[in-house]
Each structure stands twice: as C-alpha cells, then as structure tokens.
Design a protein around this nucleic acid. Structure first.
Lengths: 207, 207, 207, 207
DNA sequence: CATGAATGAGATTTCATTCAT
DNA sequence: TATGAATGAAATCTCATTCAT
C-alpha cells in the first residue's frame, strides 16, 4: 500500500511527513490543506497523490506511523520492573510530557484521534480509539501489583479511578499551559503536583 | 451587538437558531455550511449576515445562548438542599443525560467547545472552556458538605478526584454508546453503575 | 430545479447557454471544460454552480432545452396535412438541414446524445435516446397514409426500411461534408438526391 | 514507426495491446487512462512512452491492429462463391455478431471509430471512417450478382438501401441489448428477424 | 531496455461574504 | 428588513508526459 512511499529517499520522506504532521496537528483533518503540505514539503502537487491516493490515506498513514514511534519510545524507556501503579504512572507521565516538549506537533496530532470528528475519518479513528484505550491500557498497566490495595475494595474500579484522575490532572495541566500560551513545561513541578494526587489516592485505596 | 437579532420575531429567531444549532452540532464549526443553515431556516443568505457579521459570530452567539439555557435548566432542577457531593453528582449526571436524550443536538453542540479545533474559534473556545470549568465548578459544587471527609485528607484534591472520576465514567459511557451506535440511554442502569464508583470513593475518602 | 436560472435576465441566460452549448458540442461531455464555459460566458466560476449543481445537471438541462426548441420548430413548420411518408420525410429533412445550417452547434449537441459515452451521463442519455426514437417516431410518422403500400407487403418493416434509408443517406451526406470540411450545404441538391432514393423505394413498396 | 514495439517479445506485446484495448473500449479515448493501461499490462509508465510517443499514437496503432485482425477474419470465413446480396449479408451479419460475442471489447473499440469525438483523434478517425466505408464496401459487396434486380431499378441506390437497412437493423438490435443490459445474443433469432427484412426488400427489388 | 519519481497545469466544486435592489 | 445573484480564492485530485538512473 505505502511501499512506494517507504522506498523513497529518507530525507524527502521526512520532509513530507513533517509537513503533513504540522498541518494536520495545527488544523485538524478537515482544515488541513494538501496545498500547504506540498508547499512546505517542497514537492509538487502530483507527487503527494502519487504516494497517497488521497488525503484520508495520508492522514491514516501518518497516524499509524507516529503512534508506532511513540509506543516504541514508551516501551523502551519505562521501568517495567516497578509494579506499583503510582510509580508506573509517574514514569509514563514524565515520558509523555518529555515527548510533548520534544515533539509537540506529533503529540498533538496523535492526541487528535480523540477529538477528530471529520466525518470522513471518524469511523477509522473511533475504531483506533477503542484499540488504543483497551490494548494500550493492558500493555501499560496489565502487570501492576494489586496486593497493595485494601481488603474489600473493588480493585478494578479503583484502578479506573486512578486512571481518570491522572488523565484529568494531565488535561488540566495542558489546558492551563495552553491558556497561558506557554510552551515550556516544568516537568518536575508537574510530577510533584501529581504526587499529591497519588498520595490522596494511596491514602484512600492502599492498605 | 446582537440586539438586531433579538428584536426579530421569535418564530424566525427560533428557525435560525435551530437550523444553525443542527448544522454546527452535526458537522463542527469548519464543516458547517452557512448555505445549509439559510436553506434550513428558510431565510436568505443576506439576512443571516445582516444579523451576524460572520460565521464566527453566529457560532459564538449560539454557544452563549444554548449554554445559558442549559445552565438555567440545571439551576432549576437540582435539589440544592442536598449537600452530599455524591448525591449532588448523581442529580447532575441524571439531568445531563436527560438533557442529552431530549436535545442531543444542543448537547453535542455545547460539548464541542471541548473538542473544537478550527483555528478561527479555538482561542475563544479555549477561554470559554476555562470559564465553564472553574465557574461551573464553583456554581455546582461550591456548597457541598466537606465535613464528611476523613480527617487528614486533602479535601480539595479529593473533590477533584471525584470530579474526574465522574467525568471519566460519563465519557466512557458516551463512547460506548457511540461505538454501539445506540441512541437510547438506560439512565437508571447508568446511575446504578455510577453508584458503584461513588461507593469506592466513599470508602476511600469518607469517615 | 432550474427555476433560479430561468428567473435570470435573459441576456445572461443566453450567454451561459450559448457558451455551454458551444463547449459541449465541440468537445463532448467529458472533454468540455466548465472553466472555458464561464470564461466564454463572462461569469464567475461560482455562478455557474449557483445555477446548476454540477456539470452533469448543466448538460442535461441544455439537452432538454435545445431539444425542446428543436421539436417546437419542427412542429410549427411541418405541413401536417401531407400524409405521404416520402413527402413528410422530405419536409423533415429540409427542416433538419436548415436548422443545421443556422445552428450547427445546437444540432451537433443534440445529435451527440447518440454518441455520448461518458459514463456519468450515459444512462440518462440512453434513456433519452429510447424516448426520442420511439416517441419522436410516433409524433412524426404516426399519421401517414399506409393505404399507398402494395398489398401483401409488411408495412411496418417497410416503414423501418424507409426510415433507415433516410437516416443512412443523411449521415452519409453529413460525413461527406465533414470530410470536405465544408459547412455550407446545398439543400436543394441534397433534397434532389434524396428524391432518387424515395423513387426507388416507391417503386418497390407502393402500389 | 512502431518497429520498436513489434520487435518486443510477443507475450509482452499482447499484455500491452490487451490492456490498452480494454481501457479504450470501456472508456473511450479521452477517458482512458494511461495509468490504468500500464498497471493492467504490468509495465512501467516510461516503457509505454518508449514504444508509443503519446496516447494518440497508441490509440491509432491499436485501431489499425485490431481492424486488420477483424478484416482478416472476415475474408477467411465468408463464403465468397455465394453472390446473392442477402445471403452475403446474412453471412457477414452472423460473423459480426459472432465476433462481438467472442471479443466484445475488440468489437466495441473498433466500432468507436464512428462515435469518437475527442478533438485530438477526431480528424484521423473521420478519415478512417471514410476509408472503411468505401473500401470495406467494395471489398465485401463488389462482386454480388446484380442480375436478380428488377429491370428499371436503380441498382446502385437499391444496394445502398439494403446496406442502410441492415445497418439500421443491427444497430437497433444492439441498442435493444444495451438497454436490456443483456450481453448474450441469440444469433439465430437475430438472423431470422433479419430475414424478414430481406424478404420485404426482395419483394420490392428482385424480379 | 526499463524504471517510476516527478511535474504542474487543469479539472470540478464549495464557500463565506458582499452589495445593488 | 430582506433578497439572492455574484464573487473568486481555495479545496482535492488526475493526467499525459519527461528524464535521470
């Protein structure tokens, strides 16, 4: 399917990928302009459609591509021997924000799968959302140590609560930065604040 | 600003409002077509731009308008004498899903403030998001009874956790319905499941 | 459907119609360029699509329009009291070639219904072809005097033979003109030559 | 001119020829895509244009090629000792429809010379049409027995009438099949119906 | 001989907005 | 107030043809 593209010299591949990434990340699927992409990538209009049969295919390819890169990064850098859910979360959060610092556009682009509502790609993205949530979840938290939870507590639901708390906290942090138009995250400060929430939850749920 | 529009005969106001609501809710800001709106509202193109100087203004006006209606609804129907946070949440959740059942388009439209990424309206929507979250929060949960929480717990953060849990749970429910292409919500079932989460949280946070 | 267009001031209607007619007649459906049409008609690109929702609709409208004009012309100018099939044919042929002289593009355009094979309009044109052939035939030759034919002859088939002969003759004449790149027809010469064929057929089929 | 191509190994020649035939027959000159042709023939874009300097040349070459094949077939299979024009026509008609059954694409392609109106090839095709009609005619009917015609009849014109009748009949049959979306021809039924027309003509023109 | 990446003009269609009436 | 004709830039995508390798 995309063999043609992958045979291309890597420098040009990169130019195309990054141009598309930037455009989609900033404007969303619908608003992104293939014209802008080719201009930024410095290729001809025809060439883009030589490699990707239409805008949708390009978008879907990009999504796979960068998600793969992101997941690889995660799997390499997480300390998998640490089984405590709060420690694990801290590692993941730190990594996530590091990636965001380094590749904000890539991060935004991937994140957009959760908000993209252009009819054309909605179905594919919805499927993807489900996969990421369920598979991603099992991958990342399937092996945590549940023996630390209080007797009598509904562990599965407690884990969901932890999950939602961490997500909620991250999002609020993100929003705050957006609102302040800041791009620089103080990751240590973030992790410290996160730790307070972990503490509250530990108090409530752990023995 | 919109005085001209508000002087218009109410029946025509309604036609315009509902046509625009439907279009924006279904297609998002960018994708919504003013052509479709005037066709549905049975007015001329010129008239729409006579009342609203551009598409963006129309969108912003609509948002204020329907959010006001929604908040009014909430304030009228909530039992404000109940000060327990979980009870309060249950009331709000029930109301939210009732509104969704009854006016899914209005609901979707308002909700879109959180996902809209069309460059033109993004800044305004981001500001709005902050307002809703902080002001809405204080409005709805400013008076709850904090004496029920365990001694030594960080109540403010605990409340945030409760908030994110309820939001996370609602969203997951919504997504599940979307994925199953269902439109009908069994509200009692939803509330019952929500109660389980409340129970876990009560166990952890309440005396 | 096309009410919008028909309300337009006639001078501009004409400019659009003639520009489109010319383009379609010369290049066929597929090859005709809406860009050329708007340029020739001196209107903006958008306006064409304000009146006709797409290229296909424009084509179909044009076809109806000019065919109507053509049929009206025929019905007005034929001497309907003459019931002899050969006389009737002579009248029609003369008229046809007069129209061709006067409006060669209109003529070519209508004729193209029989050769148009662009997938998009083929189905509609095929239906039309059937209609024209069967209805047109009945209209034009439904009332001829069959008592002149020899006893024992299969009149229906004889009429078909006359029909095909006249068509074949006309086409050959047309082709010859095309090949010689002539535009001017000597109609009297044509009719005279046609008369020879009528004579052969009369000899064979009439009492 | 096409020497290069004819030196190519026959299997590849065939792949190219058939791919082009199919594409042109199905879509007409203008609509046919050289992209599709190379894909179907499994050759590179460059190679096609190495052998044929452009699309038009390919089309013209194809036309010669398949017409030659078709004419050869005719000359081999007709019973040239039968000099009665109706018998000869029956043979030719039968053969034509047999070829159509067997190679509908080749048939359609050749036939298209009569309807092709893409500006680029129109002139060449018009010239070709004349050649086929006049030369083909002499080839096929130059030796028929004219002594069977009635005294006093204009034999040359009578033959034209027979010709147009048979063509007209064939075309009507074809159109009927197209309209019914049938692909299968009942050749015997067709010949039987044709015989009725022959009978009417014999009655009129033969002694 | 053979490849296939590259071109870029040109295709149809949409759209928010304006303005004369 | 109200109309709806008019605009034209911008959108996505196609296509025959070239050329360096």
């Amino acid at each position: 399917m995309f063999a043609k593209f992958l045979n291309l010299n890597p420098e040009k591949q990169d130019r195309i990928l990054n141009a598309a990434l930037k455009e989609f990340a900033q404007k969303g699927y619908q608003n992104a302009s293939t014209n802008e992409i080719v201009k930024e990538a410095e290729i001809s209009k025809g060439l883009l459609f030589h490699y990707f049969k239409n805008k949708k295919d390009l978008y879907l390819f990009l999504h796979n591509h960068f998600l793969d890169i992101f997941m690889e990064e995660i799997h390499k850098k997480i300390n998998w021997s640490e089984k405590d859910i709060f420690e694990r979360y801290r590692d993941i959060a730190r990594l996530k924000f590091e990636v965001y610092q380094k590749y904000p556009e890539m991060f935004n682009f991937i994140k957009n799968v959760f908000t993209e509502d252009a009819a054309e790609v909605k179905v594919d993205m919805d499927r993807r959302k489900q996969e990421i949530l369920s598979k991603g979840y099992k991958d990342l938290f399937g092996d945590i140590d549940t023996s630390k939870f209080k007797e009598g507590i509904d562990v599965e639901r407690a884990i969901n609560i932890i999950f939602w708390t961490m997500e909620g906290f991250s999002n609020r942090y993100h929003n705050k930065l957006d609102a302040l138009q800041l791009e620089l995250i103080n990751i240590d400060e973030l992790i410290a604040e996160m730790e307070f929430y972990s503490e509250v939850l530990r108090q409530g749920f752990y023995k």
